[in-house]
């Protein structure tokens, strides 16, 4: 019988539609996998309330798991709410490797969005925000004042 671990291994190969360098496991979107009788139940959670990729993620997850599992159900849950703290260390390294600054530590109060630790291009810590919103719901646009390159930043959330 195929195991829950087999499912996790398959999920680790399902890319996020908007950040394809990382998987749904790296991002912490896939929250739980378990058997309910003969049915495999996968729980996913959206990053933001309006995340337009959820339906596609559900479709991709089902399609991938169908390679080895006959009966798969994907459930979407909101609680507990997704946080960038769930992005794995491997996921952070992959983001940085593709020029996207991974989220910094979350700060209190929530009004503060944190800041990138360094420029993903040159490693300089001299960075500044260009715009609070970016090309996807989870990112902001920053730039490095050392190498002058702009870069995406996954907002601490």
């Amino acid at each position: 019988m195929v195991t829950v671990q087999d499912a996790w291994d398959l999920l680790a190969d399902v890319p996020d539609p908007e950040l394809p360098t990382v998987s749904v496991v790296d991002l912490g979107i896939a929250r739980d996998v378990h058997y309910d009788g003969d049915r495999l139940v996968v729980t996913i959670t959206p990053t933001y309330s309006g995340c337009p990729a959820m339906r596609e993620i559900e479709h991709d997850v089902k399609a991938r798991l169908a390679e080895r599992f006959a009966d798969v159900e994907v459930r979407t849950v909101l609680s507990p709410p997704w946080t960038t703290d769930w992005i794995t260390d491997a996921g952070r390294a992959k983001l940085a490797g593709s020029g996207i600054a991974p989220p910094g530590a979350r700060m209190l109060p929530l009004l503060v969005q944190g800041r990138p630790e360094m420029c993903p291009h040159c490693g300089s810590t001299a960075v500044e925000e260009l715009a609070g919103f970016g090309s996807t719901a989870c990112k902001a646009l920053w730039r490095c004042t050392t190498c002058r390159e702009p870069f995406d930043y996954v907002k601490a959330h």
Partner: peptide, 21 residues
């Protein structure tokens, strides 16, 4: 209502970011 509470848990973080803007 647990469903409403779940929606709110996400929305609270988003609203904090919106009001900053």
């Amino acid at each position: 209502d647990p469903v409403v509470a779940g929606i709110a848990g996400k929305a609270a973080k988003e609203a904090a970011y919106h009001v900053r803007h």
